[in-house]
């Protein structure tokens, strides 16, 4: 998808966040040299196209007591991963769920499901539900807990306009 230059300017101006001011879209408009109604219309269109997933806040899970965050990983039979991945993704404690390639022999897992909880014990309990759900379609699994956030920014477009 080619990005319209004005849309691109808006993305550049907002990718680090929205100003916390009374008229944030007017402030963005001033930055990119468009009118406020134009910025609003363009951002609404970007949201309708799915380029903007949503405008929202992201809470810091750790600060809110969700101190245990386990990336659970599973080696699931390829023929069943679509069906079972959909069931795992639908669990209310799973925040992300993807099929990814294995990297044999180092990494045998092809299904990733992020599980959050207030303790590792809670994450383990939730993980046990995934074990049950996958049954004998799962050959091996592991849980990788996060020890430290090293960086968290989000998408950044480069300044190049090529």
């Amino acid at each position: 998808m080619r990005l319209d230059p004005q849309d691109r300017d808006i993305i550049q101006a907002t990718q680090a966040g929205l100003p916390m001011t009374e008229r944030p879209y007017r402030d963005i408009a001033a930055t990119v040299g468009l009118s406020e109604p134009d910025v609003i219309a363009r951002m609404q269109a970007l949201q309708a196209r799915g380029v903007i997933r949503r405008v929202a806040l992201a809470p810091n899970h750790y600060r809110l007591g969700m101190t245990a965050n386990g990336m659970t990983v599973w080696d699931v039979e390829d023929t069943r991963v679509a069906e079972l991945g959909a069931l795992v993704g639908a669990l209310d404690f799973v925040s992300h769920c993807y099929e990814r390639p294995r990297a044999l022999p180092v990494w045998p897992y092809n299904l990733f499901a992020m599980v959050h909880g207030s303790s590792r014990a809670e994450v383990e309990n939730k993980r046990a539900r995934i074990v049950t759900l996958l049954g004998d379609a799962c050959r091996a699994s592991d849980t990788l807990y996060s020890k430290r956030i090293l960086k968290k920014t989000g998408l950044r477009l480069s300044d190049r306009k090529d």
Partner: peptide, 18 residues
């Protein structure tokens, strides 16, 4: 105070062609 890590639009890199 760090309770919010980001506030603003969440862009889908894939929808941007990335």
């Amino acid at each position: 105070d760090g309770t919010i890590t980001r506030f603003g639009p969440f862009y889908d890199a894939a929808a941007l062609g990335g």
